[in-house]
């Protein structure tokens, strides 16, 4: 290596020549010969010492950290024994908050994934699962017009005159106030097409988005692909049963 460097030094001029000068300088350091040279050497030796000292001094300043680190090559680390729980540490409260947030996002984005409309003989349209749902998963929103009770009464009377109107009014309580979601109007939304069963696989849940109550259907159990989605309309009134006897089942 060194020989190669010297050889190139004879070919190339200035830059490498300085290097060879330095080398001779160090040579004189290691083998002093004449008093004449000693003078020169002590001078350059000081310089060499200075340059040597600087890098030594730096780690000293960091002693606290570096010192320990070098010594510890023969020490086990605690991370070998205890698992690191960086920020993945979640209290049950944050888990709950996250769930709520994902639910809200699903409603905001009008999610209707993994659902299929199917026509059932005898009861008309229904919705079946096109994918698996886990218990507690958001399935679909029961979307319609959010109306108050007075408006609901007016509409109810109007729909009662029309035998083909069907049953699309869902009454619920949110923060101690009675509301109704009216999905009678054909909207292309799937929530309104989910059929009734007293032992369905969905639950209704209300949540507040931008201070407006929304009605969502949540998986009550895990739901397999192809299962029909059903939930309890909750209406047991005599009047309703007269018009829709299937509500009893």
């Amino acid at each position: 290596m060194v020989r190669g460097a010297v050889a190139t030094a004879s070919l190339v001029h200035t830059p490498v020549q300085t290097r060879t000068q330095k080398m001779t300088c160090q040579d004189t350091l290691s083998s002093p010969s004449t008093p004449h040279r000693i003078q020169l050497r002590s001078d350059s030796a000081n310089e060499v010492k200075k340059t040597l000292k600087q890098p030594v001094a730096k780690p000293k300043r960091k002693l606290n950290n570096n010192h320990i680190e070098t010594k510890n090559s023969d020490n086990h680390k605690l991370t070998e024994y205890f698992p690191v729980r960086r920020s993945v540490r979640k209290v049950s409260k944050t888990v709950l908050e996250e769930k709520q947030r994902s639910l809200e996002d699903a409603v905001r984005n009008d999610m209707e994934d993994g659902l299929k409309v199917k026509v059932f003989e005898g009861k008309g349209r229904g919705v079946v699962a096109a994918k698996k749902f886990q218990r507690g998963d958001f399935v679909v929103e029961y979307k319609g017009d959010l109306i108050d009770m007075t408006e609901a009464k007016i509409r109810e009377e109007k729909y009662a005159q029309d035998n083909n109107a069907g049953c699309y009014m869902y009454y619920f309580k949110h923060n101690n106030q009675q509301y109704c979601v009216d999905a009678t109007a054909e909207s292309g939304k799937l929530g309104r097409l989910v059929n009734h069963s007293r032992n369905g696989n969905l639950l209704t849940r209300t949540l507040s988005i931008d201070n407006k109550p929304r009605l969502v259907l949540i998986a009550k159990d895990s739901i397999e692909e192809g299962d029909e989605l059903l939930y309890d309309y909750g209406d047991r009134s005599k009047e309703s049963l007269k018009h829709h006897p299937w509500l009893a089942y």
């Binding site: 606290n64 950290n65 320990i68 680190e69 510890n72 020490n75 086990h76 680390k77 605690l78 991370t79 205890f82």
Partner: peptide
């Protein structure tokens, strides 16, 4: 907290 060398806590 662990020290810088992760040997002690």
């Amino acid at each position: 907290a662990m020290d810088n060398s992760h040997v002690s806590l």
